[in-house]
């Protein structure tokens, strides 16, 4: 479904993503692992069109999207749940969900929003409340709900478990499993290696922008020594907050 070939992302002199290739099959869960600063966020942002790649190709369902706008990608069924949730705190819960339907012109938006509320009863209770009043976990649910309203074929999530309580992390991964059962493909960027490899079919490991490992999730999970070498304390950014993108 998603085919990425030799993708490069460059900021000035920083090469954040270096010739990364990856695929996500129809309805597959794929994870991308890597320490802070490895280029995971840059990769996802390039896939969604928020940054222009300096090289490589992105194909989705056979269509070349490399030069397309983020809007075109959303229309085609790709959606990103960005790092740090990025919900609109000046809007209500419902307005946030409607933002997910920004490009939709069909009449079933209301029905889809109702089904989001069924999935997340917490959000239903607070539908007219400001999104800023939600807890961190609820905000993450809202960010995912907002993405789902666009009716994606592929949902990309950038460290969704970051900052969540263990209970919400559990719920998050259950949710991802449920979405996958509904046929939605998932590209999951995570620091929670164990849980990500547990749910994913395959995984990639990035180090300083380069794809250094690629295998089935099982193989990666059993190869703990190797994965930890790449995921553990690499570089000076490892202990800092992830770089906030402008």
């Amino acid at each position: 479904m998603l085919e990425v070939e030799n993708l490069d992302v460059t900021y000035g002199r920083t090469r954040a993503v270096k010739s990364v290739s990856l695929t996500v099959g129809e309805g597959e869960i794929v994870t991308v692992l890597g320490a802070n600063g490895a280029g995971k966020t840059s990769l996802l942002r390039a896939l969604q069109g928020a940054v222009r790649p300096s090289g490589g190709r992105i194909r989705f369902n056979g269509r070349d999207l490399t030069a397309q706008s983020p809007a075109a990608r959303v229309r085609d069924g790709m959606v990103l749940v960005p790092e740090g949730r990025q919900i609109f705190v000046s809007m209500t819960v419902e307005e946030n969900l409607l933002m997910g339907a920004y490009l939709r012109k069909d009449a079933s938006v209301d029905r889809d929003i109702a089904s989001i509320y069924e999935r997340f009863p917490n959000l239903a209770e607070r539908r007219y409340a400001s999104a800023s009043s939600l807890s961190g976990g609820e905000q993450q649910m809202l960010a995912i709900g907002r993405a789902l309203v666009s009716r994606p074929r592929l949902i990309m999530l950038d460290e969704p478990s970051l900052g969540l309580s263990p209970l919400f992390v559990e719920r998050l991964f259950t949710l991802l499993g449920d979405l996958n059962k509904d046929g939605i493909g998932i590209l999951l960027v995570e620091q929670n290696t164990t849980m990500a490899l547990d749910i994913a079919a395959r995984g990639y490991v990035l180090e300083l922008g380069t794809n250094v490992l690629e295998d089935t999730a099982e193989a990666l999970a059993s190869n703990t020594a190797l994965t930890e070498a790449y995921l553990g304390g690499h570089g000076e950014t490892a202990t800092e907050e992830p770089a906030r993108l402008a």
Partner: peptide, 17 residues
């Protein structure tokens, strides 16, 4: 809503199309 989204967070607005 699109205008308000851009006002608050142009990046997130862009990502949603």
């Amino acid at each position: 809503r699109g205008l308000r989204a851009i006002a608050e967070n142009p990046d997130a607005a862009n990502i949603l199309g």
